[in-house]
Design a protein around this nucleic acid. Structure first.
Lengths: 191, 191
DNA sequence: TCCAAAAAGCTAACCGTTAGTGTTACGTTC
DNA sequence: GAACGTAACACTAACGGTTAGCTTTTTGGA
């Protein structure tokens, strides 16, 4: 059975991190399209197959926080106080996520994503996955009592809010504007 | 200048159609992933480069109606009677599109799309393009007087309705349920 | 110390896609 | 109607992401 006593896991995590760091550095230095998988592997001093055993695709190298992002969304739903309403909690979380993405330090990464069709497409389908897990979290809350369709719809609207607001000149204001619409949509489904 | 008096255009269109037909037939017969681009080109008796001069990618072979779909959405907005409200027109159009996609004859194609991650991803980003053109059409209507963000948001919600409802057991009912939510969201933005 | 399994490596290929370079068929113009 | 420009198509060869198959190294536990 074994508890995987540490070293192995740590080494694996270190390899993964080294690959991700190297990739991001090279992408930012020379451009996403210019840098090949073989370049990243060579610079990180691993085999190409090793790289692909840690990351499912070239695009996945850029979106390392994927699962962290997903968790934050679901925890905003599952981790709220009893009887705390759903949408303000989600609005607060989306505000935080948008702030994080538009922070000065992350601007170059975001520019890179916008500049590459492959990365944009990848992020789009990432968001749909997130919407589905968010929908599951909402549907699991017994206090809400909405239909499956309503839950999935609201979840999509919420990730739409994230995507759309980031593209506006004033992202924080856009989050609020869109959430006014989402609140109305949610109210229209109250049982 | 030139009116491209016919034969050349007809031959080009015929080639394009032959490629599309061959591709769809092979995909349905043997499976999308199993059939390679070289197979399609050989069976349609054209060079691989010719195939790619007619279609931008392998996935595009499946979504031939792409632009037709886009036009129907925008025409639902621009072609409505004066003072006819926006959302009922859109709801009607989405109903028609969903009915078309879930028709018996098209079921195998839809199954193929659902079964292939590449095709799903392609369709997702197609929908985002459609949402953007729909948003532009909505924003261009002087009677509505909404913000850019509100227009883009509603456009996304509408294409979401299309995508979500197709996955439910009763698509037509789902369209109505989701549009109740969208109507509420839209009303919340009235100036 | 030795074993089983995980992790990493290497080679070679597959497949979608594109660049480079002709060649043919068509429409226009003189 | 002959010559010219160009759009459509073909052919070869490659590039880049990705995977399969197999070997080697590392690691944890017996």
């Amino acid at each position: 059975m074994t508890v995987e006593s540490g070293r192995r896991e740590r080494k694996k995590a270190a390899t993964r991190q080294k690959i991700a760091d190297t990739a991001l550095r090279l992408f930012l230095e020379r451009g996403y399209d210019t840098v090949g998988i073989r370049d990243v592997a060579a610079e990180a001093d691993v085999a190409v197959t090793t790289l692909f055993s840690h990351f499912a695709s070239k695009e996945a190298l850029v979106f390392e926080q994927d699962t962290a992002f997903e968790q934050r969304l679901t925890e905003a739903v599952t981790g709220r106080a009893p009887h705390e309403p759903l949408l303000p909690a989600l609005r607060h979380e989306i505000h935080a996520l948008v702030r994080h993405c538009t922070a000065d330090g992350n601007a170059p990464i975001w520019d890179m994503v916008v500049g590459s069709p492959a990365l944009r497409e990848y992020e789009e389908s990432m968001r749909l996955r997130h919407a589905e897990t968010l929908a599951a979290a909402i549907a699991a809350d017994p206090d809400l009592g909405r239909t499956t369709t309503a839950c999935r719809t609201i979840a999509r609207f919420v990730v739409d809010a994230y995507a759309l607001s980031r593209e506006t000149p004033d992202p924080q204001a856009a989050v609020d504007e869109i959430f006014e619409m989402i609140e109305a949509a949610w109210s229209a489904t109250s049982p």
